[in-house]
Design a protein around this nucleic acid. Structure first.
Length: 319
RNA sequence: CCCGCCUUAGCUCAAUUCGGCAGAGCAUCGGACUGUAGAUCCGAGGGUUGCUGGUUCAAGUCCGGCAGGCGGGACCA
């Protein structure tokens, strides 16, 4: 694969890359490393899936993929007992594999290295040059609790920065909520004599309730191993205002989970409402904004595609 | 370590001076209305009142102990 098509594969569907020229340099390396960290979570949902699919593309573009199962981070974020979190991490690993990451993907449990002396020393070094305000600000979209702040909250981003050093990362990936921590890494790693990774951010998927972010704690998600019946039920309840494209979760689902695999979306619609249609993405957005496509027809169609898209995942999980 | 205040539904808070069946708003769920959802209207579920011991016919309410939160004080060679 040449550089240009690699860049195309990586750029598609990402909101920002910091920076593209640095990324091109990294692509010259033999086997550059891309990493993403996930706090183990009771359910892996479509929001996670967007980033996993991006990782698969990076894999195709020649990156070695490291997935951090960030058990200590989840622990520091008040998600429960460490032992329980580790169990969830095992389940999550299977979910990520089910989404299609190749067998070369490396899964690393945070606690397997995050208590080493060299690690801790680096966390302390960063602690010395990071202000409280900056550390807290970087956690604004990540922390579980908006009040009742614990010291854990400011340790979290520092550890994440040191993770990049220990995992020898060339590229750090995440949703846009990771941006501030990533910028902290880019600013501070050079100050302790380490090189900072390229940062790549994907858009956040809105929740089924229309809120800013799909997240397991808010119950506004569709899990990758939900049954077809559950998917239908959840899609029925999903926020979907007519004519509104911006922040519309159903449109976003089509964008991220249908169009990357299908040139055209086939809308099945009763004759009395105008009959079937074939649309590409720009056409869909256009026609929906003009209210020439009813939300229910869109929903029904996207639901069917989604069930189909998640079928292999479901089957893998049942094994 | 000491002192004071606080802890009631998932969340924010009520609960007559002085003990008498624990309520509301938001959220959730369900119906109505829309060819979806939302909004709106109607309805429902939801509680070991932080834990524990006591006083009393009767304790969210009074007394003791413990835990957690908040604020202050003290310590600072």
């Amino acid at each position: 694969m040449d550089l240009k098509s690699k860049m195309g594969l990586i750029t598609k569907g990402t909101l920002e890359i910091i920076s593209e020229t640095e990324l091109e340099e990294k692509l010259q390396k033999e086997k550059p490393v891309a990493y993403i960290g996930y706090e183990p979570s009771g359910k892996i949902h479509l929001g996670h899936a967007i980033t996993v699919m991006k990782m698969i593309n990076l894999q195709k573009a020649g990156f070695k993929i490291k997935i951090l199962l960030a058990d200590y981070h989840a622990f520091l974020n008040g998600k429960g007992k460490l032992e329980e979190i580790k169990n969830v991490a095992e389940y999550n690993k299977k979910c990520f594999q089910a989404l299609g990451l190749s067998s070369e993907t490396e899964f690393i449990l945070g606690s397997s290295f995050q208590t080493k002396e060299e690690y801790t020393t680096q966390v302390y070094q960063l602690a010395l040059l990071t202000t409280l305000v900056r550390a807290k600000r970087s956690m604004a979209q990540i922390t579980r609790d908006a009040e009742d702040h614990k010291v854990a909250e400011v340790i979290y981003p520092l550890m994440q920065v040191v993770d990049m050093v220990f995992l020898e990362v060339d590229l750090a990936m995440g949703g846009m909520e990771q941006r501030k921590i990533h910028m902290l890494a880019r600013e501070n790693l050079p100050r302790v004599g380490k090189s900072a990774p390229v940062c790549l951010h994907t858009p956040l998927l809105h929740g089924t309730d229309g809120s800013e972010k799909m997240s397991s704690s808010k119950g506004n998600f569709i899990a990758i191993d939900d049954s077809p019946a559950d998917i239908k039920k959840k899609m029925k309840k999903t926020y979907c205002p007519a004519g509104e494209v911006e922040g519309n979760p159903v449109i976003e689902m089509a964008e991220h989970f249908i169009f990357p695999f299908n040139k055209k979306l086939i809308i099945k619609r009763p004759e009395k409402f105008g009959g079937n249609m074939e649309l590409d993405y720009t056409k869909l957005v256009d026609i929906y904004a003009q209210e020439k496509l009813h939300p229910l027809d869109l929903k029904n169609t996207v639901t069917d595609y989604l069930i189909d898209f998640l079928k292999p995942v479901r089957e893998y999980m049942e094994k």
